[in-house]
């Protein structure tokens, strides 16, 4: 069985995987990092978004072996010293979630938007950038508000 080695949330990790093992499976099953969710399994919903080498990708459409040597950040790696990241805190403050299933992906997508588009985000920019993240509870309104608020506090 091939062995994959990568850095996840600042920690070097490795594990036995198959060719077909997806990055999300490696994170959830090998590393027990279950904050990254599998929503649709058809690459559309974005609940599985993590950052690989600084870029937001869908971990359900990424092979674990292709992340060999990569630096991966999941939702578990976002808070610092037991304090929520401003983007996480903003989701709490703005009621940016109901069931919470899509939230890890939304937060990771939100952080990626800030990285690429800056901290002062227009509502329409956020809505367009959330193309790859589906929420079935909120109607997106408070998610957009959360990202706008979180971005401004980063």
């Amino acid at each position: 069985m091939p062995i994959v080695t990568m850095n996840v949330n600042g920690k070097d990790v490795s594990g036995d995987v198959e060719g077909r093992t997806l990055l999300v499976e490696f994170l959830r099953e090998n590393l027990s990092l279950t904050g990254t969710h599998v929503g649709c399994d058809t690459s559309q919903c974005g609940a599985c978004v993590v950052h690989v080498d600084g870029k937001a990708v869908k971990s359900c459409s990424t092979l674990a072996l292709s992340a060999e040597g990569a630096k991966v950040t999941t939702i578990e790696g976002v808070a610092r010293n037991g304090e929520l990241h401003p983007m996480q805190a903003a989701f709490k403050a703005n009621h940016g979630l109901q069931c919470g299933f899509c939230t890890p992906g939304m937060v990771m997508a939100g952080l990626d938007i800030v990285k690429r588009r800056g901290k002062k985000l227009k509502e329409e920019t956020i809505r367009a950038e959330l193309e790859g993240n589906i929420c079935r509870c909120t109607g997106y309104h408070n998610i957009v508000k959360s990202i706008q608020d979180g971005a401004s506090k980063m």
Partner: peptide, 9 residues
């Protein structure tokens, strides 16, 4: 094309 995450790959 697709969405931001798809465009990254």
């Amino acid at each position: 094309i697709g969405d931001p995450h798809v465009r990254h790959k």
